[in-house]
Nucleic acid binder design. Structure first.
Lengths: 125, 125
DNA sequence: TTCCAACCTGGAGCGCGCTCCAGGTCAAGC
DNA sequence: GCTTGACCTGGAGCGCGCTCCAGGTTGGAA
């Protein structure tokens, strides 16, 4: 539970320093503690949140929705169901996203296969 | 080989009218023919290109790179190898993208599973 | 004590990919 | 001929998610 410096938090989370500050500024990251000199100290719990944000961002969740989730979590245990539903709906969108990505990847592979064949008669690129 | 109206092209390609015009403006879509009155007529070949652009966009290729590809295609058959390599490199990035997406999806599902368990002791959201 | 790298703040700026708008033209149906 | 809706152009504007900047502070090492 020793704190982490901003640069350490950046390294561990994969977010830039500016992004960490930005996340705090918009209220996504809440209550990050400070040294007496005013410098941020990230706890393991903060890093846990950052890990979640990393997951949600990588799967395409808009920041506004992550803010909503974080806010719910701050409101306490009685919002657990709503948070769960939020994540569930997101997971469903991710599934669609994965399906689309796979379909288009297959198209792309087909296209490449045309090029691998004899070099004649390829249309539309 | 009958031409398609702009709105038809939009419907068939899934791009908006504005996007079709934008793609032509930046030179991604090239040489779209016109009626005597100045209105666009999209050929099946144009739609083929739009289908490719749809595939590439859905898989996250930046527009600049699609422009590069289209330009190469215009230069003729001798750029076939370079185009193939461009697509191949893109396909590899898509594979990484899919792997990341799956990993993060699994994390997300883990997270949801915590909520499905008893409602106690959940950290970081 | 002095140095310097890491950190702080508020706010402006940016890159991307569209999206919207004003003001005008075209053409099919009545 | 008139209406109406689809279309045209050039250019401004937007939403997102950062990213950068200026100018100042902090704090550990030499």
């Amino acid at each position: 539970m020793i704190g982490h410096s901003p640069s350490e938090a950046a390294r561990l989370s994969g977010f830039s320093l500016d992004t960490l500050r930005y996340y705090e500024k918009i209220g996504l990251l809440n209550g990050v503690s400070r040294t007496s000199g005013g410098r941020r100290v990230f706890t393991d719990d903060d890093l846990g949140w950052l890990g979640l944000f990393r997951c949600l961002r990588d799967t395409g969740m808009p920041i506004a929705q992550m803010c909503r989730y974080a806010e719910l979590a701050r409101e306490g245990e009685h919002t657990a169901r709503e948070r769960q539903e939020l994540l569930e709906r997101h997971a469903e969108r991710v599934e669609e996203q994965m399906a689309l990505l796979r379909r288009q990847y297959d198209h792309l592979r087909d296209k490449i296969r045309y090029y691998e064949g004899v070099s004649g008669g390829v249309r539309a690129g």
